Computed example of a mutant assay.
Amino acid sequence: MAIIRGRQMGMDMPTLAKQFKTSESVIWATLNTPNLSKATGRPLKTSSGDNRIIVRISKKTPRLTSTDITQS
């Protein structure tokens, strides 16, 4: 991001705030938020291909239960 790159180049927060036409609190929050790119939660048990097959089967016969779809 440009804000992070500007801070790495030595610019202070008031200068960055003026450059990006925002408040210093937004600059501070941007610089101090943790990296959220790491995936959280339980890993998926089905692949995207499996998901497409499940959707196709459930659209073809909507009265099937999840157990019936799993068996087929």
Rank of each mutant, 00 (worst) to 15 (best):
P14M: 01
L31G: 05
K18N: 13
L31T: 10
A29C: 14
P34L: 07
P34G: 13
T22S: 08
E24K: 02
L44P: 14
V26C: 14
A39E: 08
E24H: 04
S25T: 11
S37L: 10
L16R: 09
T15Q: 07
N32L: 04
M11H: 15
A39Q: 04
F20G: 02
K38L: 05
I27F: 01
M13S: 06
A39P: 00
T30P: 00
T40W: 13
T40S: 07
T46F: 05
A17D: 09
S47A: 01
K45F: 02
M13I: 12
G49T: 10
L16D: 05
N35Y: 11
I27D: 03
M11T: 11
S37C: 10
D12W: 15
L44N: 12
K38Q: 04
W28T: 11
F20H: 12
P43Y: 02
S23Q: 09
G49W: 10
A29H: 13
T33F: 09
G49L: 12
T30E: 05
K21H: 11
T46A: 10
G41A: 01
A29N: 15
R42C: 04
T33M: 15
P34D: 08
A39L: 09
K21G: 08
R42N: 04
T22R: 01
T30H: 07
P43C: 13
T46D: 12
M11V: 07
I27V: 06
A29I: 14
M13N: 07
A39G: 02
T30A: 06
E24M: 02
P14I: 03
T40K: 14
E24R: 08
L31S: 02
S37A: 08
S37W: 15
P34Y: 02
A39Y: 03
M13W: 12
S48T: 14
L16S: 05
G10C: 05
G10K: 02
G49N: 09
L36W: 12
M11N: 10
S48L: 14
A39S: 06
K21W: 14
T15L: 04
L31A: 13
F20D: 08
T33L: 14
K38F: 08
W28G: 03
T33K: 15
Q19K: 06
N32G: 06
F20E: 06
Q19L: 04
D12T: 13
I27T: 06
M13R: 05
P14Y: 02
P14H: 04
G49K: 13
K45W: 06
P43G: 09
M13Y: 13
N35V: 15
L36A: 02
N35G: 12
F20P: 02
I27N: 02
Q19G: 03
